[in-house]
């Protein structure tokens, strides 16, 4: 099944963004990647308009919790409390291994919490497993139908 998938990456680490962007180009040309590099940009992108008015809604959101002085958890909460946005899978992909972050994320209904591996090889294999699972095996709401 070929579908165009819109992924929103919210991260402020230039190296991680680059790794991710490069790998995605190799992995699948049907991914349309948007990047927000801080809290305000992410909020603007997601909440500036009504859900129905947004032309290209993300199918999957990848979120680094540590953006803008750890505002990621606030963003997760806003997304998962929103009547429509909450149906978008949010994967926290973060350098934080703080147990409060892990518990809070699941309490705020994160779809999965993933710690960024330290080695580049493992980071790359994480991204490919993650994309394989979430793009090929999991069904996610497709807004082109609704």
């Amino acid at each position: 099944m070929i579908r165009r998938t819109e992924i929103l990456l919210i991260d402020d680490d230039p190296e991680d963004i680059m790794l991710f962007t490069n790998l995605i180009e190799e992995f699948d040309s049907h991914i349309n990647l948007k990047i927000a590099q801080n809290y305000v940009d992410a909020v603007d992108l997601l909440f500036q308009k009504h859900f129905d008015e947004i032309q290209s809604k993300p199918h999957i959101i990848l979120l680094e919790l540590t953006i803008s002085n750890h505002k990621g958890i606030q963003l997760l909460k806003s997304i998962k409390e929103h009547s429509e946005y909450r149906k978008i899978p949010v994967l926290v992909v973060t350098k934080s291994n703080n147990s409060h972050d892990i518990w809070n994320s699941y309490d705020y209904n994160v779809n999965a919490y993933i710690q960024k591996p330290k080695s580049k090889e493992r980071y790359l294999s994480l991204i490919s497993i993650m994309l394989k699972f979430w793009m090929e095996m999991v069904s996610i709401p497709d807004y082109t139908w609704s």
Binding site: Q115, S119, F133
Partner: peptide, 29 residues
Amino acid sequence: EMIQVMKLFWFEYATIPINTNGRLNKNEG
């Protein structure tokens, strides 16, 4: 293949909290 990838994703890469007694499953990065 689905079971394989699901197992890898949740048990090798994701961090899952264990709820009751403060135990926490962490995967080494």
